[in-house]
């Protein structure tokens, strides 16, 4: 689990000002969270599946594919 990756996502989700800054200048915002190069790359590439794999918080890895089809 990457706490720094989780921290930046939590902050972006709860802090509209920071999210706005991130959209303008992602490198500047990412530099505040001590992310690894791989983590920065995941964010820059908007690699949702890669981020899920990196976080590995829930044990629900891969669940995105299933959950959107609850019909």
């Amino acid at each position: 689990m990457s706490n720094n990756l989780l921290n930046i996502l939590n902050e972006l989700s709860s802090n509209p000002e920071l999210e706005s800054q991130y959209k303008q200048d992602p490198d500047s915002v990412m530099s505040k969270f001590e992310l690894t190069d791989d983590e920065k790359s995941l964010l820059k590439n908007e690699d949702t599946q890669g981020i899920e794999a990196a976080l590995q918080l829930s044990g629900d890895k891969g669940s995105i594919q299933k959950i959107i089809k609850l019909t």
Partner: peptide
């Protein structure tokens, strides 16, 4: 809960 991402689970 059934949510698709670790971010929501943590929250």
């Amino acid at each position: 809960y059934i949510t698709p991402d670790a971010l929501s689970t943590g929250y």
